[in-house]
Write a protein that binds this DNA or RNA. Structure first.
Lengths: 199, 199
DNA sequence: ACATTTGCCTAACACTGTTAGAAAAATTAC
DNA sequence: GTAATTTTTCTAACAGTGTTAGGCAAATGT
């Protein structure tokens, strides 16, 4: 039947509507406020329908984290392509990461939060590796070496990530961090690590 | 009545039993598995009784974070008093912080986790300031100055905290971090920041 | 011995995620 | 076009959550 296409199309549409609804609730009220029934209300179906598109709530949220990683990857690509020098690229990429975290507070917490469900985080989210790989590459370039040793890049990567993610976490929880402190600490740390990498 | 004392004593006891039960559940099954009914089961009362000791679940958990801060503060004091040199003290204190996070995974997440309830974190947890102040002091000493400027200490403190907390968070979520990576990144970062402070 | 306070429990409300099975709608077969 | 079948959707329920109102019974005060 030719109507099979149409049916598939509206099924895809409904699936997307579910994701959109969930994202809207999460962004507006936080993930603790997200419920299957609220999603059902928005898409104008009854709750069980959602289970025809997602195995359960956790699977649904995992899908949302993938959306998050795609946005982050896109942002970071733009940041990278604005510069030629690896050190400038790296700086801008981490700044972009930082900005993403606050522009998409809830989404960031879903992706990197401690408590939230998606804790297994094996390789079930391949999207998560795109931003990571982008950073890796640029760190590699920055060393100036032909074949930079894996574990050196790895170490620098984790150092970067720790500072940035740590600073973000602290800010997301504690909203009393002195004004201007963040930018300074962030930039200091980034340039500091970059300096330690450059040949 | 002399029995008033006894009554107060068993009331204190029950309160402590509630906290103990909650802690036990949290440590064993994670905070998402903590429920008022489970606590009630353990202390062999019905759920409403708990509300005579704590306003609600959130208040109860806030109390648990205070317990966490007291443990952390105690550990850190011991670490500090093992050394004379400020740089050694600082190093050991952060290492202790690190060890605490993994020895008390669940508790750490309750204290510093992003998702969990206790997100207001104004000054409702004075205990939280003890470990922070201890670090501040030693950073101050390390500068070698008479009156070290507030914002310099503040900046170093946040840099320290970011790296350590970030690294911990990453490890608590992602259990695939390469072996030996953590210690190296941690020690490198700590000694790096210390070097930048020393006169 | 009676009155009052205290401690504790039962029952309920309004939620949550999730599932089984009935009803309705659309599709296919004749 | 009607009948059978498949697909889609809903209703109702289960087991769990935090929290509260109201009542029973035991301990206390007079």
């Amino acid at each position: 039947m030719a109507s099979a296409d149409r049916k598939q199309r509206i099924k895809d549409e409904t699936r997307q509507n579910i994701l959109d609804a969930a994202m809207r609730i999460g962004r507006a009220e936080g993930w603790q406020a997200l419920s299957m029934r609220k999603i059902a209300d928005i898409i104008e179906y009854t709750p069980p329908v959602i289970y025809e598109y997602f195995a359960n709530k956790e699977a649904l949220m995992l899908e949302l984290t993938k959306v998050g990683y795609r946005i982050l990857a896109k942002d970071m690509k733009i940041a990278r392509d604005k510069h030629q020098l690896p050190e400038k690229q790296l700086e801008d990429m981490w700044l972009t990461y930082w900005n993403f975290a606050f522009a998409e507070k809830e989404l960031y917490q879903l992706m990197f939060g401690i408590e939230v469900n998606c804790c297994v985080w094996d390789n079930s989210v391949p999207e998560a590796e795109i931003p990571a790989n982008m950073i890796w590459e640029v760190i590699g370039e920055l060393t100036g070496m032909e074949n930079p040793p894996e574990d050196l890049i790895c170490k620098r990567y984790y150092t970067f990530w720790s500072v940035v993610h740590g600073l973000i976490s602290i800010n997301l929880v504690r909203q009393g961090v002195p004004e201007g402190m963040n930018e300074e600490v962030l930039k200091d740390a980034i340039t500091g690590i970059i300096r330690s990498i450059k040949p």
